[in-house]
Simulated scan of single mutants.
Amino acid sequence: AGSQAAIQALPQLFVPGRVGVLAPSYAEHAQAWQRGGHRLVRLAAEDIEAQLDTLDVLVLANPNNPTGRLFEPGQLLDWQARLEQRGGCLLVDEAFMDCTPDYSLAAYSQRPGLVVLRSFGKFFGLAGIRLGFVLAEAALLARLHERLGPWTVSGPARVLGLQALGPAGGAVRERRARELQAAGERLAELLHMQGLPPAGGTALFQWVCTPAAVQWHDFLARRGILVRRFDQPASLRFGLPADEVGWQRLARALDDYQKESA
């Protein structure tokens, strides 16, 4: 029922150990491993290589949320091999991977010590469907299935998933990827014009570092525009507006803030 269900369940399948989690990143990963009794180590991307051999599990998102950082598949597979030699595991959350499929590790997910998560709703704009995927070796999948129990995915979600991801949906997926890439570039340009140059991002979001993150977050929320705020570093993640009316609302709000704070 969405990759969130797997994020919460997977830590329960591992013996408590030392778990490195990329930071900043999607906060639910760190919370889930902490709740599972693991010792958490928050790591910046540039610190992973030096710390890898001290970890039992490494958890990261590719591309990362919110920074947009993309890790090369070769580097990730090298880290996975080093972890697996010691009985460890690499977990890669590919929730935002659909527009950059060449970076995916899905084709390698049968390897021991590798778990790949994929999401459905983000790319297709259907978050309410609650449909996600776990790709891993068969033994781990069997244990996860037992923990999650039966009927985790609704009938309507199965139907929509088959239509969107089946062979007949290939042209739709290609068109959707082009549309999202164009929208991501439009969002980056809009933010840049308003003095908020993105520090990173993907086709689906842009990440802005600003010491005024709290003020921006409050200002936009009061206008019905919700962005994700991060404390370390002070930053905001802007998603894509749903339609042209949404784009105009965002542009006006950004302009209004600049005028009021001048």
Rank of each mutant, 00 (worst) to 15 (best):
G169N: 14
A5C: 04
P241G: 10
L254M: 07
F120T: 03
Q194Y: 03
G68C: 04
A44F: 04
R35V: 08
I48F: 10
D47N: 00
R39D: 02
A107K: 00
F124W: 15
D218G: 02
R18W: 15
L91R: 00
S25L: 03
L236A: 03
D218H: 06
Q110G: 02
Q181S: 07
P241S: 09
L126R: 03
W151D: 15
G74H: 11
M97F: 07
P24K: 02
L131F: 10
S104E: 04
Q51C: 06
R147Y: 06
G184F: 02
R42F: 07
L117Y: 15
A136M: 01
A242D: 12
L196K: 00
Q85G: 08
L22W: 00
A213S: 07
A212S: 08
S119V: 01
A262I: 10
A199S: 09
S261Y: 14
A5N: 01
S25T: 07
L250S: 08
Q232G: 03
P167I: 09
G170T: 08
C89M: 14
D78I: 14
C209H: 06
L162S: 13
F238G: 01
P16Q: 11
A5L: 14
A168L: 11
Q163R: 01
V227T: 12
R223N: 11
L55M: 09
A5H: 04
A188E: 12
D218A: 07
A251W: 12
A171L: 13
L40F: 04
V214F: 02
L58I: 13
N65M: 11
R173N: 14
L187N: 01
G20Q: 10
A188F: 11
K259F: 15
L144R: 10
T210K: 06
A234I: 14
L226D: 09
A6Q: 00
P167T: 04
L117Q: 06
A234P: 05
L250Q: 07
A81G: 05
E84T: 02
P233K: 07
E185N: 02
E28F: 01
V245P: 00
A1V: 04
E137H: 08
I48G: 07
R237M: 15
A262N: 01
L162D: 11
A81W: 04
T54R: 15
D56P: 04
A221K: 06
R186D: 11
P63E: 05
Y108K: 12
Y108D: 15
N65W: 14
A138D: 14
R237G: 13
A242M: 07
